[in-house]
């Protein structure tokens, strides 16, 4: 019951934060020199068209009123027209968001599987060569920005070894499957187009791996240190004294509590993954929302910039709530505290 109350509180607070964010974005969009109406119609349009548009866009009103109109439309899902595509921004986001989500999802999956796996191996064989190798790898992952990984991977796996394609979501001669979820790999599977699925999967490897590298490193580091911490706890010593096998201790008693910090960090990382996707998507020509946002920024397409950032804020907020829920599920102490209403 109070878990539900906690959820509602969190959701309401997120709405408040998003409102604040919308003010920040609105201010950023309005400090830009230049007239949005003039930019929307182009330099050669006659002045009266610009004036008419200024009225339509409420640009002749005080800034607080402008914000009110902007927010009212934004809540209805109307962010206006995009300068670059000349389509409603909402439409563009609906078109591009699934590609970014798919990329982030795979990146998160890779990060979780490899990061946690490496962390467990490291903790299990602490101070062995496996541990040292994985720590070295973690360090490299943390200090190398993902766009540099992207370039190195393209060079190595794309050009030199030719293992993976380096551009787009599917090969040119492969038609996209009819849209259901918008995630190409999922849609292809649902409709039984196995070859399309494999092709799409092949395309997603390099971009998602570039995005995941940093998170793999983080997850491995945190899993290792939290397992090492928990390994010295009394309850583990107790299990050993009771003669429980080392394998059972690892898998049943040590892993679950040790994964809690990893999952909190991974959840936040997914948001970070989305943000560096801004650059990585451009490098791989991935038709996602981040590349769309990046182009919007380069062409000062304010409507699109505002919408993309708000969607990011919303995604971040949802991720945070999800992480809290998962952590509460994994950690009974948090559930108990929530139940007591603390």
């Amino acid at each position: 019951m109070s878990m539900l109350r906690f959820l509602i509180q969190r959701a309401l607070y997120s709405v408040f934060v998003l409102l604040g964010l919308s003010i920040v974005i609105f201010v950023i969009a309005r400090i830009m020199p230049g007239d949005p109406a003039r930019m929307a119609v182009g330099a050669r349009a006659p002045q009266w068209v610009v004036d008419r548009l200024r009225e339509q866009m409420h640009l002749d009103q005080p800034i607080a009123i402008q914000y009110y109109y902007w927010l009212r439309d934004a809540v209805r899902g109307d962010f206006g027209l995009s300068l670059i595509t000349q389509r409603p921004v909402t439409y563009d986001i609906k078109e591009t968001l699934p590609a970014s989500l798919e990329l982030a999802l795979y990146a998160a999956l890779i990060a979780a599987v490899f990061g946690i796996g490496m962390g467990i191996l490291s903790a299990r064989y602490k101070d062995s060569w496996i541990d040292n190798l994985s720590r070295l790898f973690s360090y490299a992952g943390i200090v190398t920005p993902s766009y540099i990984f992207a370039i190195l991977f393209i060079l190595l796996f794309g050009f030199a070894l030719k293992w993976f394609p380096i551009i787009g979501r599917v090969s040119e001669n492969v038609p996209l499957p009819p849209k259901i979820t918008g995630l190409v790999t999922v849609d292809a599977l649902i409709q039984g187009q196995f070859s399309t699925f494999v092709d799409a999967l092949w395309h997603i490897v390099l971009p998602s791996l570039s995005l995941a590298m940093g998170s793999i490193a983080q997850a491995a580091r945190i899993t290792r240190s939290s397992m090492a911490d928990n390994l010295t706890k009394d309850y583990i010593a107790n299990m050993r004294a009771l003669g429980v096998s080392e394998r059972a201790i690892m898998s049943r008693f040590l892993l679950k509590p040790s994964l809690i910090p990893t999952i909190s960090i991974l959840g936040l990382d997914i948001a970070a993954i989305l943000s560096v996707a801004f650059i990585v998507e451009s490098i791989f020509n991935w038709p996602g929302m981040a590349r769309y946002g990046m182009n919007a920024m380069l062409y000062k397409d304010l409507n699109a910039i505002s919408a993309v950032i708000l969607v990011f804020g919303a995604a971040f907020a949802i991720m945070n709530i999800l992480v809290d829920l998962i952590v509460a599920y994994l950690d009974p102490r948090i559930r108990l505290r929530a139940a007591k209403g603390e």
């Binding site: 934060v17 604040g20 950023i28 400090i31 943000s275 950032i309 990011f312």
Partner: peptide, 22 residues
């Protein structure tokens, strides 16, 4: 702290890109 939360609501790179772009 509420203002801080608002600025922390989006990864810094995204807002920095947005500000730099204008």
């Amino acid at each position: 702290m509420r203002v801080t939360d608002i600025f922390l609501a989006v990864p810094p790179l995204v807002l920095a890109l947005a500000v730099a772009s204008v």
